[in-house]
Structures are given as C-alpha cells and as structure tokens.
C-alpha cells in the first residue's frame, strides 16, 4: 500500500525535477508499475514535452532521479531506456526494467535492439 501511495509523489517529483533540469514544462502523464507477459517487470513513465536531446544531454541526471523511485519500490533495474515516438524526436516513455532471460538477450548486445530507443543506463553483465 505504501508503494501505491508513493506513486503520486514519484510522478510529481519526476515531473518537477525534469522541469528544473530542462528549464521548461515537462508533463509526466502517467507513471505505471508494469509487468509483461515475457517476464519483465518494471516502471513505465509516459511523457509529453520531453525530447530525445533532453534524455541524451541529461542522461546521468535523469538516471539519478529515476533511481530514487526504483529504490523506493525495490526495483533494481537492468536497463533504463527512452522510447521515441517512431520517426520523431519526441520521447513517448521511459522504461525501467528488470529483464527476463529472453529480453536480456535482446538488450544485451552492443547495438540498440530497436532504432527508436535511447538507452540511458544498462547494468554491467
């Protein structure tokens, strides 16, 4: 129950700190605890107003901010990545995931598995 109560705080905190970081309005539309049929678990955060350039320039600061959230829900993510709206520079969401075995292979190589993602953090294997 504490985790659920804290989700609003986390959503608001991420939004506010990204506004501070970028100096403009960023909207965290949703912050979801997620589980996937493949076996991955994590947090998915949906944005409006966040750009690819923001996540590239501020990658380490954004990871720092997000790690505070993951600590509170006891998620030790294997990967943190931004998904771009296909063909655009707009960040649709940022995912923090504990990977299943199959996805670990997909994300484990040297090359981004998909062209519309930008990896902010990957745990050393």
């Amino acid at each position: 129950m504490n985790t659920l109560n804290n989700l609003l705080d986390h959503r608001g905190s991420i939004e506010k700190r990204l506004m501070k970081l970028t100096g403009r309005v960023i909207w965290v539309v949703q912050l979801n605890l997620s589980s996937f049929s493949c076996g991955c678990t994590g947090i998915t955060i949906f944005f409006a107003g966040l750009e690819k350039e923001d996540v590239e320039v501020f990658a380490s600061r954004i990871v720092e901010i997000l790690n505070e959230v993951t600590a509170s829900v006891r998620l030790d993510p294997d990967i943190i990545y931004a998904s771009l709206v296909p063909g655009s520079s707009e960040v649709g969401s940022i995912s923090l995931k504990r990977l299943c075995d199959e996805c670990r292979k997909d994300y484990g190589g040297d090359v981004r598995p998909w062209s519309n993602i930008s990896i902010l953090y990957k745990k050393a294997c």
Partner: peptide, 15 residues
Amino acid sequence: SFNYYQRKCRSLRVK
C-alpha cells in the same frame, strides 16, 4: 500503433 497527431498536439501544448 500510435496516434502521431494527438501525441504531437499534446507535446506542442506542453512546450
């Protein structure tokens, strides 16, 4: 898969 127009509209208003 996604509605580009509605997403872009929303992010334009935020920016």
